[in-house]
């Protein structure tokens, strides 16, 4: 990529950010209206029993793979930090649900509370008040070790910094969650090989993680996130450390996982272009949701 196109991209991104903000402010109400219409439409399409089960949960589902099962249920979620400077309310009552098979992006500028929300969704942190139910499990009152077990089984993490064990091979990295999930060795190996194949790194199985490019490392991380067949794949700025030419490659794997394997995916990002790969975007600002609606599909990376 030459200098000109880098400049182009960054300018485009700036513009896109502006677009989103304007879009947020102007269209929030309009979105909600659309949302309601959509809900009404979906309601009319579902059976009575499902209606009964989900009657208390606002339906907000987008995308071709969406099923009726709710995997994330967040209600009146509040997170307050108590520091020396007094208390800081980072999340001020968040409400949303994610159904199985959804591809959701959570957006917001820094300080909006999206990292905090990601930590709570990833069971790395617990809410001050409110409900968080993950795949039917209310994590309230769970002990540290129980939370670890929930993380291991229900969530597949993909981090901005990849977080692979540099001196281990690709296969060993992918197998790691299986150790804590107590999957037998042979089964774990077979599964890891299959997942490495899925992210098209079959020929790199025995390479050390530190020998791979950023994009390849992130693909290993995606394979690793699937080791335990988690309820959700939670990706925190998954392309933040990647050069632009590798972002599309990584993001398209998320799309593939969602479309072809029906995985529920939640991506936390501040880049509209990343969010555009998803089907639904939740926008956070100052600890509240300012937008929850279909993702803007018209924004793309300039990958030339």
């Amino acid at each position: 990529m030459d200098e000109k196109s880098v400049k182009n991209t960054s300018e485009k991104n700036k513009q896109l950010n502006n677009n989103v903000q304007v879009y947020d402010q102007v269209n929030c109400q309009k979105d909600l209206a659309t949302h309601r219409t959509l809900c009404a439409y979906q309601k009319s399409m579902t059976t009575d029993t499902m209606l009964a089960a989900d009657s208390k949960v606002a339906r907000s589902s987008f995308g071709p793979q969406v099923k009726d099962k709710v995997v994330i249920e967040v209600k009146d979620l509040v997170k307050t930090y108590y520091g020396q400077a007094g208390e800081t309310r980072v999340l001020k009552g968040i409400n949303f649900t994610v159904h199985e098979g959804e591809f959701v992006s959570i957006m917001g500028p820094s300080g909006s509370g999206k990292s905090t929300l990601m930590h709570i969704l990833g069971v790395l942190d617990t809410p001050t008040s409110g409900l968080y139910r993950l795949d039917g499990i209310d994590i309230k009152d769970y002990s540290e070790d129980e939370l670890a077990a929930v993380r291991g089984r229900k969530i597949g993490f993909v981090f901005q910094a990849f977080n692979l064990l540099a001196q281990k091979t690709v296969l060993e990295n992918v197998m790691l969650p299986g150790i804590y999930g107590k999957i037998p060795m042979r089964q774990r190996q077979d599964k890891a090989r299959e997942l490495v194949g899925l992210v098209r790194l079959d020929n790199r199985c025995d390479h050390l993680a530190c020998q791979l490019s950023g994009g390849q490392q992130q693909r290993v991380a995606i394979a690793r996130s699937l080791m335990m067949d988690p309820a959700i794949v939670l990706a925190d700025e998954p392309t933040g450390n990647l050069p632009t030419d590798q972002t599309d490659e990584v993001l398209s794997f998320f799309t593939k996982l969602n479309r072809e394997h029906g995985k529920t995916i939640v991506i936390i990002t501040h880049e509209p272009a990343v969010a555009s790969y998803s089907d639904r975007t939740i926008v956070l600002r100052d600890g509240v949701i300012t937008k929850d609606g279909p993702a803007n599909k018209d924004i793309h990376y300039d990958t030339n």
Binding site: G122, D145, A148, A149, R151, G152, F157, F159, N163, Y180
Partner: peptide, 16 residues
């Protein structure tokens, strides 16, 4: 520290 954090995120319980 980071590796420990990662292991915890991947489901490692304290005793492990």
């Amino acid at each position: 520290t980071r590796e420990i954090g990662l292991r915890k995120a991947l489901g490692a319980q304290q005793r492990y």
